[in-house]
Simulated scan of single mutants.
Amino acid sequence: MDTPNPIRNVSDTALWVAIYRAMETERPDALFRDPYARRLGGERGQAIVDAIPDGAQTSWPLVVRTSVMDDIVHRCVQSGAKTVLNLAAGLDARPYRLDLPRDLRWLHVDMPEMVDYFRTGMAGETPKCRLEFIAADLREADQRREVFAKAAEEGPVLAITEGLLIYLEAEDVAALARDLHDIAQAKWWLADLATPRLLKLLEKRWSPTLKGGNAPFRFGPAESTAWFAPYGWRELQFHSTWTDAMRLNRKPRGAALWNFLLKISPRKQREEQLRMSGIALMERT
């Protein structure tokens, strides 16, 4: 690319993740199919994968995240969700690639330039449901609340923050949690979560590249989903990234050693390690 670091800002991480979805799609035993991912990720997305240390080898947690979230979205829709509020949606093509009810309302929300990029890349494609694009800066309280009020018009609402919270400060996550509860009145909130220990591990491997692109990892609550309780949310499901990687056969290098160490660890320590990274489905209280 034209700069040593291909990551220019947080939005570019969507290109990175799209390439991982493309890599999975191209496998004969793919867990999901995203035929748009390679096109959307483009040259810059591939350059990011190439720039990240062991970039091609570290696709597994993001592939697992995509697969598990796909399943949870389906289950929530089957349980009555009428609106999906997809925040910082990036290049998420679920409205095009998942088998969704035609009358499902899907709100694809992101920064204006990211929405424009996605719409251009998907020109000529037909979504499976009622897809609406909303260009908004969620950091701006008035814009955020306007979007959330719009979502609340047709409930029950499933909110998705895939790959978003880790880039936010804690006070921004708190504001988001309050508004999803009070204004969007979301019934469910689907999010991926890390812990402080995982952030430290990622700091050594990925942070130089991410910080150089003004996209450092910030949010990883030690309390896991309990952190969200004061804002009206409780854990409904938690899917350990590691456990699901074993189940889905997307094992990283050294998995056998890590599984041995987990097996001989005290129970409390083992449970903490398995929750270092995961996908949480929370419900509104």
Rank of each mutant, 00 (worst) to 15 (best):
A51I: 02
L248M: 03
P35G: 09
T285P: 13
M276V: 07
T58Y: 14
A88W: 08
G212R: 11
V147R: 13
R94Y: 11
R119P: 00
M69K: 12
K251Q: 12
K82Q: 14
T195D: 09
A256R: 12
G212D: 11
G254T: 02
M1S: 14
D116K: 09
Y20N: 06
T3H: 15
H181T: 00
D182A: 10
D182T: 00
L201W: 10
A222L: 11
Y20S: 05
D142N: 10
R39F: 12
S11Y: 11
S265C: 06
K187E: 11
R145V: 04
M23D: 14
D29G: 11
L40D: 04
L100Q: 05
A255S: 10
Q237I: 00
A30G: 05
L176K: 02
F32V: 02
Q269I: 10
K150A: 14
G45A: 04
D70M: 05
R145E: 12
A255L: 05
V173I: 05
A151H: 08
D142L: 10
S224N: 14
A51C: 08
A191R: 00
V64S: 12
L91S: 09
D54K: 02
Q273V: 03
R247E: 13
G278E: 05
A186P: 00
R102A: 15
K128P: 00
K150L: 15
R44F: 07
I279A: 11
A30T: 07
A226K: 14
T161I: 03
A175Y: 01
G55V: 01
A245C: 01
C76F: 11
E271K: 14
D172W: 08
I183E: 07
